[in-house]
Nucleic acid binder design. Sequence first.
DNA 1: CTCCTTTGTCTTTTT
DNA 2: GACAAAGGAG
Length: 738
Amino acid sequence: MKERLNTLNPMQREAVLKTDGALLLLAGAGSGKTRVLTHRIAYLIEQGVRPFNILAITFTNKAAREMKERVFNICEEGNQVLVSTFHSLCVRILRRDIDKIGYTNKFTIYDSDDSERLIKDIMKDYKINDDLLSPKAALNEIGRQKDKLITATTYAQNVDSDFRKKLIADIYIAYEERLKANNSLDFDDLIFKTVQLFVNNPDVLEYYQERFKYIMVDEYQDTSTSQYTLIKLLANKYKNICVVGDDDQSIYGWRGADINNILDFEKDFKDAQVIKLEQNYRSSKTILDTANFVIKNNFGRKEKNLWTENEQGSLINYEKCNSDREEAVFVANEILNKMKDGYSYKDFAILYRNNSLSRILEEQLVFLSIPYKLYGGVNFYGRKEIKDIISYLKVLENPDDEISLKRIINVPKRGIGDATILKASEYALNNNITLFEALSKADEISDLGRKTKSVVDFYSLISDFIKKAGELSIPDLIDYILYKTEYTEELRKEGTDEALGRISNLEEFVSKAVEYEESEEDVSLTKFLEEVSLVADIDSMEDGDNVVTLMTLHSSKGLEFPVVFIVGFEEGIFPTYRALTSGNPTDIEEERRLLYVGITRAKKELYITNAKSRLQHGRYINNATSSFFKEMPQELINIKEKPEKQKISFSTSEETSNKYRPQPSYKPNVSAYLKRDIPAPKNVFLDFQVGDTVKHFKFGQGTVLKIEPAGADYEVTISFDNVGEKKLMANLSKLKKA
DNA sequence: CTCCTTTGTCTTTTT
DNA sequence: GACAAAGGAG
């Protein structure tokens, strides 16, 4: 043991040895905090603490898995330590005791998509115009309340005359009622209800206080009030709690993370010891200096001085490109260049502010046959076909779940449309039963007419599935559902590439179910659904693959790469338009921290790139350089700007260079978001003029009366021979000269 | 009443 | 360029 402790620096060692009481570990980027945590767990076990009594909370499942492995490598008993995310931990606790707060343990977990559907339903019921308040905004506001442990009733009591808030309060109350009726919890509830369970049932709390005598929380800067409260409750008896965080890396404020948790920790645990880890083992001096220089622009930070003994390293590369295409070409070519220096694919990461920036990069990587893996974006479990089959499974588990039920009731099409669902819902409401129960009494529902049979058939289909769920393995059950509903058959008939893609996704889902059954000892549909609900894309990341990594800056937290590209360094993208216009300076500070996170991912080389013109939402946008650029130490940056109007060498679509028109030029330094309306459509060419005869695939032949630019396309007024005058979008409706 | 076609909105970031 | 809601045809 002693020998192992000698591999740690004095501060790290102190943190490992301080086993009892409260410890706040302020760990700068790359300062070896994971090392400290794993050694600390191992040390606890060697000191005689039972592994069973240790709880470690991480931010992702991936981090949990890795930490478990690393502890296990130091000491074998380490695999009995519970390493988990907040959400997984809470589900575990709730499955045992949620009946004490009025749910059953077959409860369903709603993802943000499910929650939004429920909000939409409610707003429809209440006839709330969504011009006033979008379902997303309402859901977001409600989520932030839950993060702060504010119930619907409390929220409603405290809204003053604010019309919008009153509206949200009404929705919040209804939302809670419906969730309960559906026996469902949203992500935020998982934490909130666990806290409620503990507060209302001291015996349950005490059970877990005894179980988790030693608690560690990683990424503490990203915990919300509810999460912190949960931890405080658990640690309240033995007070052996160690939290590890870095206020400069707090990037989830929008999700309810509260940076004050770091400041409050010392107040709540009066004898808390504070240890700072300030030596960075990851990055070159140049990279670290740049990061430090940038983050100094934030106010209200915990004072720290991150330093390194690493070599100076090469300058930061800043590349200003003319277009997004040019930027992608640059990044891909640069990766190939660097490969000649002995790097391999897995040494590179391309990071961006939002997922939509990944597409053009992917295209270019594919074009140059550079292997890569993209994380985030459309989550595998978020795809339509996967959500559909999961909804079937959820209904079997919990027929009260009306959101999943409504999702699949007419998928594939079986003649149960909105009107029928509405009648059944009304019947359910009037008789105080669930929608699913109402379906079983289809014959009693008035004016269902000939639709009664469709409903009866659907009900017996689901009943059969419920019966089969008890008999078949999960993969077999999925296959059975896909077969009986003719889901796969429908797709096969469709025959398009898209449909075939969906079929292979479904096949992959079945394989995942097989994998699940093989990897777990204690297999159940409940647990499978739980796992599926709580995985993030990043969790699938494996070290083995030698491929370039593409991900958002948010997802990159906690990772490191020899060479990092930060692309789209443009005002309006990074920092995001929302932060620039919110009027809240802390939003910009959070963007700056995100940049800090991005910079500190790099070990040896850092590239920052941007484009003067970028295709967004189907039109070209001209962005100024990110205002963060001038906050970087210019003497550490190698600035390169591509010459204007350089010939674009590569294009994926058929819009070849002769079709390419020069972009209109705008005044620099004006965020393109402020000039959204671009005068003339580009990349759309009409081979007809006013007076010509054109052909439409449906309306047939007609004469062009008028052509007007409209966004990225032209609006064409045509007098059709058969259907009269119509206004159509030229590109969209594929008009052709006759 | 359902289904298909057309129109509108969207884009932060994720457990 | 993607997808859901609205709108119109059968």
